[in-house]
């Protein structure tokens, strides 16, 4: 890993010194060994702040949304998940490919800082190598097939409706509505989220079961076909809510109804809810 870190710093220095990119979004070290945080390196002299270690958990592509009209290219470190997020944003016309320089890094998974076990989101990852990049550091790692992609969803589907309702009601009861899941999500790129338009009446600001249900369901549904399964929502949730079980339910149904689908693998495949076929499944006759 440290080899890649060396290479990353070298590449970053070159990119910054040549003026190819304005700044580089990568990871830096926090106070504790098990912490990293996204950093934005402008100064070539500071590239040594960039790290690549077992705790580089945050996905970075969302940060491009804070700088939609960059003067120079934005350099971003992309693993599989970040690169899929970049594709998703490009496909939504929220990002131009020519505005980013992608430093691809194959990733064999990160550790959960609390347990030091492999992070859940990484264990479930089906695309460890970046699917799009301008330069690749190191060599590709072996992909791990995910035959149990929808196992958790199926477990819930096996319950009775009332059991499921109570299961989710308990989840929504715990939600504190900090909106970390929404803000970290690279698929949530609305200029103004419907929750912030609370005066319109979409979403009450009170924290109770009914409002939390509306938020939880709407968030998952809005993300819908754009979910790249990076698992960030679930990782950042301070209450530890199983949000990917919602997102994956959408994806499972999309796969069943409209054919095999994974978001963000390329920019050409049309998103499932962004197009239709005249001969789609018909249940409403």
């Amino acid at each position: 890993m440290s080899d890649i870190q060396q290479e990353l710093r070298k590449t970053a220095r070159e990119l910054l010194e040549s003026g190819e990119v304005g700044y580089i979004i990568g990871w830096g070290k926090g106070r504790f060994a098990n912490q990293t945080h996204p950093i934005f390196v402008k100064d070539p002299a500071k590239v040594d702040e960039l790290v690549w270690d077992d705790y580089c958990l945050s996905t970075l592509a969302k940060y491009t949304q804070d700088d939609k009209y960059p003067e120079k290219k934005i350099g971003i470190c992309v693993r599989g998940c970040d690169s899929r997020a970049v594709n998703r944003l490009i496909q939504d016309h929220q990002l131009k490919r020519e505005d980013v320089y992608l430093i691809g890094i194959p990733c064999s998974g990160k550790l959960d800082p609390e347990t030091n076990e492999p992070a859940k989101k990484c264990v479930e990852c089906a695309h460890r190598n970046p699917v799009v990049y301008d330069v690749l550091l190191g060599s590709p790692v072996e992909e791990v097939p995910q035959p149990e992609r929808f196992k958790e969803v199926e477990e819930l589907e096996a319950m009775t409706p009332d059991e499921r309702y109570n299961y989710w009601a308990d989840v929504y009861d715990k939600c504190i509505r900090c909106y970390a899941c929404r803000n970290v999500c690279p698929a949530c790129n609305c200029r103004e989220c419907y929750t912030d338009q609370y005066r319109v009446g979409w979403q009450g600001k009170q924290n109770n079961r009914a409002e939390n249900q509306i938020f939880g369901i709407t968030r998952a549904y809005h993300v819908g076909d754009r979910c790249i399964e990076c698992g960030e929502c679930q990782r950042v949730c301070p209450m530890g809510l199983p949000l990917m079980k919602l997102n994956r339910k959408m994806l499972k149904d999309i796969n069943n109804l409209f054919g095999a689908y994974e978001a963000g693998l390329d920019t050409e495949t049309k998103p499932a809810l962004g197009h239709y076929e005249t001969n789609d499944v018909e249940e409403f006759m």
Partner: peptide, 12 residues
Amino acid sequence: QACIGCGTCTYI
């Protein structure tokens, strides 16, 4: 820049 603008810090 790294801040994602969520309310976690303030709510906990």
